[in-house]
Each structure stands twice: as C-alpha cells, then as structure tokens.
Simulated assay, not measured.
Amino acid sequence: MLALIVSHPLFGLLVTLVGYQLAMELNQRTRTLLTQPVLVATLIVVSLLLLFDVDFETYYASADIIWLFLGPATVALAVPLYTHLKRIQDYFWPLLVALLVGGFATVLLTLGFAWLLGAGPELLASLAPKSVTSPIAILLAEDLGGSPALAAVFVMITGVAGAVMAPWLLEKAGIHLPAARGFTLGLNAHAAGTALALEEGEETGAFAALAMSLTGAVTAILLPLIYGLTYPG
C-alpha cells in the first residue's frame, strides 16, 4: 500500500501541499519567527521524503505541476504593481538608490567574506547570485562556472533566512512604511519575502514584487561584471 502511494504520479504534489498547509496552520497559531511557513514546509517535505525513502528526482517528477503555475503566479504580481503605480513613481529615486546600493553590497560582501574564508571558484560562483530568484540564479551560476544545484540551495537559504529575520529587524528599526518594508523584503528575500509581504498588505506586496523583479534584472546584467572584478582568481 505504501509503495503504491509513493509511486503515485501526484505524490510529490500532495506532500508539498500538505506540508505547506501544516506550516501555515502552525505559523498562524504561534506567530513566531521560527515557524515561517516556507522554512517549516521545507522541513516537513524533506522529513517525509526521508521517511518514505523517496529520492529527489521522483519527488520532482510528481510535483512538476507546481512549477507549471510559477509562471502565471509571477505574472500575476503585475496586478498589485499596476494598482500602486503612482506610489512607485513617487518613490522612484529612493528605490533606485536602495536597489543599487543593496544589490552591490550584497554581492560584494558575500564574495568578500567567502573568499577570505577560503572558498574556491566554484563555490564563489554559486554564492554570487544567491539574492535573486532560482531560475535566474541557476543560469547565472552556470555562466560564472558555479554549480546550479548549489546556487538553488543558497537561494532557498537566503529566501527563508530573509523571510524569518527581516520582519523582526524591520520592527526593531522602527520601519513601518509599507513601501520600505515591501522593498526590503523583496530585495533581500526574493520570492519568500514577496509572499510574506503580500500577507502584510497589497501595497507592501507590490513593492516587494518590484524589488524582486528589478533585483533579478539588474543582477543578471551586472553580476558577471562585478564577479569578474571582485574575484581575484
């Protein structure tokens, strides 16, 4: 019976949906940093795969319908962007400065610390695009000579860590403006941060979606140049 369930073509989809629903319930009941839905859902899914002895390829093949909806879900982020277009225009220059400074600082600090700690060329190339969404990060890592698999892991860690820590840090810093909170979440935690921002409100989500989109585009263009200038090897 168990073998039939595991081999079902929708097993991965079921595990993912159940894991995320349980994570959402736990987060709503506790409202703590450590119960961030993406983090908890990931732990649940990994635990179930290990329990049922399911390899990643099998899980991926049975959950591929989720990736089918990623495109439409990303395009749908244009709706809050359009709704709050006037607010975005009002903050254009501060947002542009924040994007460039934050983007450059993230890449330079990441590469600098990793190099000082002895990271090799492949690891550096895999770390460099960690602050953008997975599809862009994987392609960039491959172009720079890194590992696409490692890049995907670093992107996930960055998104989850950002979604967990950013709200607490923003509260401690006294930042309550939806535009600032949303842009910070999207810039530092990409998709996970944008999902969290949408929970706070439509305006917060709009600025998070803007930050995630612009960060991906700017990084794809400038990262190869920055990486070439930064990495001494």
Rank of each mutant, 00 (worst) to 15 (best):
22 L>P: 00
183 F>S: 00
92 F>A: 13
171 E>Y: 05
8 H>V: 09
160 V>L: 06
125 A>D: 03
79 V>H: 06
88 I>R: 07
206 A>T: 02
67 W>Q: 15
95 L>G: 15
166 A>R: 08
3 A>R: 14
213 S>D: 05
167 P>R: 07
213 S>E: 06
134 S>L: 12
96 L>I: 09
153 V>I: 15
5 I>V: 14
109 L>W: 00
140 L>P: 09
126 S>V: 01
8 H>M: 08
180 A>D: 09
195 A>W: 06
48 L>D: 07
90 D>W: 08
225 L>C: 04
9 P>T: 02
146 G>R: 00
163 A>N: 11
81 L>K: 04
164 V>I: 14
152 A>P: 08
118 G>H: 04
222 L>Q: 11
91 Y>T: 07
158 T>A: 12
188 N>P: 08
159 G>W: 07
85 L>W: 12
152 A>D: 04
163 A>D: 03
206 A>N: 05
132 V>W: 02
63 A>I: 14
157 I>H: 08
52 F>K: 12
47 S>N: 01
166 A>W: 02
109 L>I: 10
85 L>N: 10
221 I>T: 05
61 A>E: 07
33 L>F: 10
148 P>M: 05
77 L>C: 07
65 I>A: 10
12 G>T: 06
205 G>H: 10
105 A>G: 06
28 Q>S: 12
117 L>K: 01
89 Q>L: 11
85 L>I: 15
80 P>R: 05
187 L>C: 06
46 V>T: 10
76 A>S: 11
193 G>E: 03
191 A>M: 06
26 L>K: 07
203 E>C: 03
184 T>M: 02
208 A>P: 00
133 T>P: 02
78 A>D: 06
